[in-house]
Design a protein around this nucleic acid. Structure first.
Lengths: 127, 127
DNA sequence: CTAAAACTTGACATGCATGTCAGGGACAAG
DNA sequence: CTTGTCCCTGACATGCATGTCAAGTTTTAG
């Protein structure tokens, strides 16, 4: 799969895909002529990256997370594993708090919607 | 309450508070000398703004939302109200989908944590 | 009244993710 | 082989929310 296909299948711009690779979030194999080649597994991976980005995590941190697993398996160094664990935990609680804020925001939105809805009901001319 | 106090109570920098005012998210009264004065109601308001920002809404949109209610009451123009309603709904579903992505992301993190935890258990030297 | 602390405006700088454009290769289909 | 489409790199530009610095004014406490 080349970059155009991956872009089409994920809805992520080619620019961004190259950027993610550049930031170490995504790796590719290259054709002899230098063109990027992706495999199926990259589709969900890109979506995962988007999810992390939506969480407000910067690419540096995401890279750390995505590589954390590999590191943890490949080089079973106790210190590294522990450090990795701490990072993961910290990020998890960060995500949780962002979720909380989002829920709060959505709640505020719901209140506005309620008022607005009442108004529209009162003035059916609004169609 | 002056800007330093509000900043301390909300944890938001003075720079940002001025920026929010500049973007129409926050209004202030001024002392004769020109210094900003806030009242109690601004504390929750700032927190609400932060929540919306965390949701990824740009200040322009937040201003629209926060003023939407007032507009809807003051100038009960049907078209405006309807438009406002559409905007609100769209943003609500946007926030919901971001929340979903975050939950997914947290899930992915939990898997990494599980693997990591298993590893630490296997190599108790990690302390 | 005076000095320190807090505030004001304005400008410039930064980080991040993205868009966009230009000049030049890669490759598949006729 | 040629042409049209896809891809490559690199550079410059943008939007947004913030940080930071400077020079000057206001407020407050001693």
């Amino acid at each position: 799969m080349r970059i155009g296909d991956l872009s089409a299948r994920t809805g992520v711009s080619q620019r961004s895909l190259r950027y993610y690779e550049n930031q170490g979030l995504l790796s590719t194999t290259r054709s002899p002529g230098g063109q990027r080649h992706y495999d199926e597994a990259d589709v969900p991976r890109v979506q995962e990256i988007r999810a992390f980005l939506a969480a407000g995590l910067p690419t540096r941190v995401i890279a750390g997370l995505l590589n954390g697993l590999a590191v943890c398996r490949a080089a079973p160094d106790a210190d590294e594993a522990l450090h990795s664990w701490e990072t993961l935990s910290r990020e998890r609680s960060r995500i949780t708090s962002v979720i909380d804020e989002l829920v709060t925001a959505r709640h505020a939105l719901d209140e506005l919607l309620a008022v607005n809805h009442a108004f529209l009901k009162e003035h059916p001319t609004a169609r």
